[in-house]
Amino acid sequence: MEYLLTRLEWLVGPDKINMLKHTSIALFGVGGVGGGALEALVRAGVGRIVLIDGDKVTPSNLNRQMITTHESIARRKVEVAKERALSINPNVVIETYDIMYTEEAYPGFIQSLNVDFVIDAIDMVTAKINIVEVCQANNIPLICSMGGGNRFYPEKLQIADIHKTHTDPLARVMRRELRKRRIKKQLVVFSTETPTIPEFRGESKSPGTCSFVPPVAGFILAAHVLRTILEVPEQ
């Protein structure tokens, strides 16, 4: 009989399916980018996913965040994300932390999660740098998302080392800060597209966003993690 992972099993074999069931991944951020990553991880049969996000769903999230519906407005994102994940795969273990992570506020947090891989899909630069520092110091595999706002072309997203990025204002800041810390490499997903300057956001400093770029960035993050776990050869 067919089941959730039948088609993936045809592709990779039962041993790799079992490998995914015994994999743990921490996902920082379940918004536009993180929600896409979560969707891919859950539908691939990852056995344990730890969700970290200290925000709630707002109406403006509906245009790009896969976990959101009108019914979820004002609810905590990690709880909404957990419900969606379990509605897809009731066997996945979902752990939630409704926090805005920084190493200063939560020392030793990442190490305590005991995961095989970390995905960074948050916006706050200080927290992103903390995550890189902790993961590298503890040999925890990590991939980070750079900026997904003010862009229209998901096909211009790519995976690269942080020091080979360009065009991305967030990546520029990250490069500078990581150099100060003598961190020589870090894998990221970034866009080669020149960001559009928003015209209609009033006094807000938040980026404009469309429905199709942030989730694709999340899928690319998850794809890298899943290919690494499944030992898919590089092309």
Rank of each mutant, 00 (worst) to 15 (best):
R64C: 11
D123W: 04
N63Q: 12
L27G: 04
P141E: 03
F212H: 15
R181N: 07
D120I: 06
L51S: 03
V216W: 01
S191G: 14
K185G: 11
V134F: 00
N150F: 07
E203V: 14
I17P: 05
G29S: 02
L38Y: 03
P233H: 10
A127Y: 04
A26V: 03
L41H: 00
F212D: 06
K82Q: 13
M174S: 07
V118C: 04
L51G: 06
H163Q: 02
M66D: 00
P215S: 09
H163P: 02
D161Q: 00
V216N: 09
L41W: 02
P59T: 04
A85S: 04
V46F: 08
A26Y: 02
V50M: 05
P195W: 13
T23L: 08
G148D: 01
S24L: 08
T58W: 09
Q158F: 10
T126M: 08
N18C: 12
E71H: 13
H22K: 15
M174P: 09
K82M: 11
I122E: 00
F117M: 09
Q235M: 11
Y101K: 01
I17C: 10
S72L: 06
E155S: 14
F28R: 03
L170S: 11
S87N: 14
M174N: 10
H166Q: 13
G208H: 06
P59F: 04
A160F: 03
K82L: 08
K164Y: 14
Y97D: 01
A85H: 05
R179M: 05
G29A: 03
Q235P: 12
C210E: 08
V80G: 04
E39V: 01
S204G: 09
G45W: 00
E2G: 05
L62N: 03
G148A: 15
T209Q: 12
L5V: 04
A40D: 01
D120G: 05
R182H: 15
F190R: 07
L8M: 14
G36E: 03
T96P: 02
L38F: 08
N61W: 04
N89G: 10
G202H: 10
